[in-house]
Amino acid sequence: MEALTELRQGALQEIINISFGRASASLAELLKVYVALNVPNVQEIPQSQIIESLEQRIGIDTDITVVQQSFTGDFEGEVLLAIPANAGLRAIKMLGQGRGFAPALPATDLEMEAFLEIGNIVIGACMGQFAELLNTSLSYEVPDILLTKSSITNLRRDESNKDVKALALLIKTDFQMGDEALSGFLFILFGQRWFDMLYLALDKFIEEMT
């Protein structure tokens, strides 16, 4: 199996930086706020520790809502956009600003709609740019909303790889939206069986761009 070299890790970080930059611009336009970005983190972790790793990064005491979307193509994986659950009403408020927004649904349904809309914008823009930079195309499954952190345990596992030592590639970036400092996390997960294809695409990117 190919390894995550320093160069590949750097390339992946930069690709996510650029991709999430595009996504944040779309989100900023939608919410009429500034989205502050942070440096992405790329890490190989054992697949058996995915849930624990996500929980550690989000914060054990934070109740979150996750928009989760699987993608397929030359390589497959999952994207998770995690936003604090109590951010739903603030997200609705931001989405409604200046649009003559007239709520016709109960708050909880509206919150779900707001989360899905934000997820749709962020994941679509980010992964679209990610695929473009790696000169590939990805297809997406219908997004799911996971209402509590415990729902993360329902994440689709890479069933093709039963090896307990199998790895996953976890990419994380976090961001803050607007003056109310509404924060969120974006995770991208690749199972080990896709590493070779992903690293091949990264090597082509490195060769072309440097």
Binding site: N17, I18, G21, R22, S24, A25, A28, L37
Partner: peptide
Amino acid sequence: VTADIQQKA
């Protein structure tokens, strides 16, 4: 030179 292409930035 940045990936942050927001107008506010």
